[in-house]
Structure formats: C-alpha cells, structure tokens
Design a protein around this nucleic acid. Structure first.
Lengths: 147, 147
DNA sequence: TATTGTTATACTCTATAACTATA
DNA sequence: TATAGTTATAGAGTATAACAATA
C-alpha cells in the first residue's frame, strides 16, 4: 500500500468484478432469455442436467451451489416449458428424478454452443497462460480465499 | 477452442466473474451495512462526494455510471441519515448541490480505510504486475470490449 | 421543448422461515 | 426426528415509464 496513492473506487476489486460480471452476464442472459424465456437458475439447471445426466434437485443444489428454493422454482418453470420432466422415485418417494426432454436437450446443446462462441469472442485476444492465471485467481476470490 | 474439451460452466467467464463479484462484494457490503446501515448505491454516492467534493446528482450519475432514480433514492436515504445535505442552486433551481456533512465525511474516511484494508487482504498474495494485468482485463470486460 | 430530479411499478436475484410428505 | 422439496415473504438490485418543476 503506497501511502500517497489515493483510494480509487474504479480500481477497487469488488467494484471492478461487479461491473465485469454485470456486462458479461447480461449479454449471455439475453440469449437464453430471448430465445427460450429462461432465467439464470433455469439455464444452470438445464446445464447440469445436460452435462451430467439425470439428477435429483438435491444433487443440482450441491453441484450448482444453488439453494433448494431456487432450484425448485426453476424446475417448475422448466417443466411448464416442457424442457424437463420429473419422475418420483419409487424407492424413496421424496426424491424426484429430473431429465431433459428431447426439446430440452436441443436447448442445452444450443446454449452450450452459444456460450462457447460468446466466451471465445470475449477472450479472443487473451493468451492462454494469462487466461489460466485469470481463472485461477477468480476461483480463489470466489471461494473467499485470501491466499 | 479445443474441439475435444467439453464446455464447463465452472470455467465460463461470466459465471466465474459472478461468483467472484458476489463473494468479494458481500464481505465489504457487510461493512457499510452493519456499521452505517447503507446500501450499495449509498456507499457509491458517499464515495463520490468524499473523493471529488460537492457534486449534483447528475454529476454522480455520470461518474458512478448509475441511473438517476437510484441516485435519487440513495441521496434521500443519506439525507435522512444526516450524512449528506442538499442545497438548491439559486442560478438554476433544478440542480441540487450535494455535500457530505462532517459526520458523512467521517463515514467516508472510515469506509475508504476499510476498503483499502479489505482489498489489501484480498490481494496480499498477488504480484503487482499480475494485479495490473488483472485490473486491465476486468476494465475491458466491464466496458464490453472484446479486444 | 429539453433537463433535473422524483415517484411508481415491475422484474430478477437473494435469503430465510414455515410448511408438506415422506422416511 | 431428519430429509427432499414447496410455498410465502421480504430485501436488494435493475430497468423503465410517467411525472413535476424549472429552464
């Protein structure tokens, strides 16, 4: 900390991260919103079902670090849109197996393609080593580790 | 883009930025919230008045990239807390000059110290060159520049 | 007509508590 | 009792339109 450098909000990391997150998320959110009428948690649920196969709501909560109330409402919305089906498991009727419908799988595949293309565009000018370092730093900040 | 690497949400930049922004912002927000009962926009308004001197609401909107409705409500709240005073300008009665009260200035100084300490803690293990590069990247992402 | 600032409204995201049905 | 999932509610952030007062 240099004593004679004044504090600048515009270099303050939480502020910068917020601005960057807002800008980059908004553009992608516009994709799943306008094409499929989905919200953020819905996209995350579709992603996890598409990427890891059928899961219960509980498993999605853990993998996506998302609270059960959010997952519950997302699944309800996705079910109404016919992107996800729910089936009570006979051995323990508290669990529901969630699956993508064929239509839901198409949505998943389309959104993954869109996400890849969008990220490639965002990062086209950044060398791989820098990007790796950047991601590592973001993960450690996200995990609340100061080291 | 390597063809045989599957897309991972957990490396997707908007997702990572969101997580990092959430974690780092929450900790600092807890400071101005619990000590002074302030919300995010209120802290930003106090910061701009403390850092740049008296301003009109309009000027804060421009500098802080914040919509006038948010600034309006923040100023109202700060005025009730006696951190900010508002004075209509005689030459153009549509403008209001906003100033920190002495109490508001103490809040500003305390929060700037807290922000500096918090950021130092967040970044203690990151070399200066990396940090500079990191900030530059965040600014360009926040500005929506792909280059 | 244009500008500064306020009010109203709605939507998204986050967070928590209380509830159900099952076990 | 504990667990999976639902419903209700509130706070915070974002966005837009309509408005009043002033120029």
């Amino acid at each position: 900390m240099t004593e004679n450098r004044r504090f600048e909000l515009h270099s303050f990391l939480p502020y910068l991260l917020n601005q960057a997150a807002e800008t980059t998320s908004r553009a992608f959110a516009e994709t799943y919103r306008s094409k499929y009428g989905m919200l953020q948690t819905e996209w995350r649920v579709v992603y996890h079902l598409g990427r890891y196969g059928d899961l219960t709501a509980k498993e999605i909560c853990i993998r996506a670090r998302t609270h059960k109330t959010k997952v519950s409402r997302a699944v309800q919305a996705l079910s109404q849109k016919r992107y996800v089906t729910r089936q009570t498991w006979s051995e323990d009727r508290r669990h529901e197996h969630l699956s993508l419908t064929p239509q839901g799988r198409l949505v998943f595949e389309d959104l993954v393609r869109a996400a890849e293309a969008y990220e490639a565009e965002l990062l086209c000018s950044i060398p791989d080593e820098v990007l790796t370092e950047f991601r590592t730093l973001l993960v450690s900040l996200a995990d609340g580790k100061t080291t």
